[in-house]
Design a binder for these strands. Structure first.
Lengths: 214, 214
DNA sequence: ATATATCCTGACCAATTGGTCAGGATCAAG
DNA sequence: CTTGATCCTGACCAATTGGTCAGGATATAT
């Protein structure tokens, strides 16, 4: 996290603020993912970010505020990934794209995904409001789209919610359980080729499973 | 947790031991699931178990020993669930049964599943040895079975590992992310009927997805 | 140049934690 | 009934934690 130092050298107050906040958030994402909310310590986060603990508390008054920020970030990334539902009306294309993007996020943002998973496992003590507002609305609207596809006979008549859960579960598994997958891959992270194959396999099973393709 | 008290009334040393250990393990499973390893406190576990903290440490010398025991328990339950692979040689029947049993475990043992998930998310700091021995062997042997089915033309030629991950992810999602699912179900746990439908949907999508059924 | 707002930090504190221990209570064996 | 093993527990402790604060450093506006 040489960010902070560079920003400090840069000089401008605004740049310092931006650099430090970024470094702290990146460090926090990592430490929360590795130790959970309770296990993460603000001094460990500060250490990873390369600043003194007191300085961290200057930018984020409490550990909880920092945590919320980290969670909101990954959540927003996921929300944006759903653009495919709006962009195109072909179920094959829309779902393929959605699954692919979700898989890619698991590859590029595994830590954020883990922090989210941790929070949900513990029954969302900090972000229940998000689940009941944004996530609920998001889900309802996508379910409606899928239901229309089914009504048009383009998909088998499955309950869209369980399909959605399956997509979430399967794609996020590659982030949340990435360590288990690596261990079963002889202690190597999946190579690009392996990951591409996983992505393809997942997509095919699901699309074939809902009768979108043969 | 009236167990301990009852056992104490019972009297017999052996019964006392059994009752207390059971109560402590049940309490630990719950508290570890709700707060993570670091967030769980031995005094909270003791409180839930209905005994003084010092007594808990009489049975389990360290928090870590208790945690390992909880994890081993859920892991053994999952291992037993794989009997379907040995019991029958029809892929449709074997996979259907495996998925169903895994779903049922998510329903009956959600806490254990959560503790496991937490541990893996944090890169298995306590049970890496398990992953590298038991889980690795288990997986290899099941992969071989599925590969045979594919070679016999009974399944589409997918990589068995990614199928396995998909089954794990999807079934365990109903435990680990149960809170999210409930929230999206208007704050109600899935009813028996809903859960049965989810089970069915999951099974159908996967079996159809791998070309086992039409 | 100087005033002011922002940024930085070592030292500190109250609260909590995992774990210990001495000594008391209860059961089992002879 | 006595002796020894097992079980139980209040009181305690060293270590760690999230967060504070006074005062110093740096940038920016006028």
């Amino acid at each position: 996290m040489a960010w902070a130092r560079q920003a400090r050298r840069n000089g401008s107050k605004a740049a310092i603020r931006e650099g430090n906040e970024k470094a702290i958030l990146a460090a926090a994402e990592e430490v929360f993912a590795d130790y959970g909310f309770a296990g993460a310590t603000t001094s460990k986060i500060a250490e990873v970010a390369g600043i003194p603990k007191a300085n961290l508390h200057y930018y984020f008054p409490t550990k909880e505020a920092l945590y919320r920020q980290v969670i909101e970030n990954i959540f927003n990334i996921w929300l944006a990934a759903a653009a495919s539902f709006d962009d195109c009306d072909d179920p094959i294309e829309a779902l393929t794209q959605y699954i692919h993007i979700k898989m890619d996020i698991s590859r590029t943002h595994p830590k954020g995904s883990k922090v989210w998973a941790n929070e949900i496992i513990q029954r969302a003590p900090m972000i229940q409001d998000y689940l009941e507002t944004t996530l609920r609305e998001w889900t309802t609207s996508r379910v409606a789209v899928i239901e229309r596809w089914i009504a048009e006979g383009r998909l088998a008549p499955i309950d869209p919610r369980y399909l959605m859960y399956m997509i979430w579960a399967t794609t996020q598994h590659y982030a949340d359980f990435g360590h288990q997958i690596s261990t079963l891959n002889n202690d190597h992270d999946l190579s690009e080729a392996q990951f591409a194959k996983a992505k393809d396999t997942v997509t095919q099973i699901i699309l074939r499973g809902i009768g979108a393709i043969k």
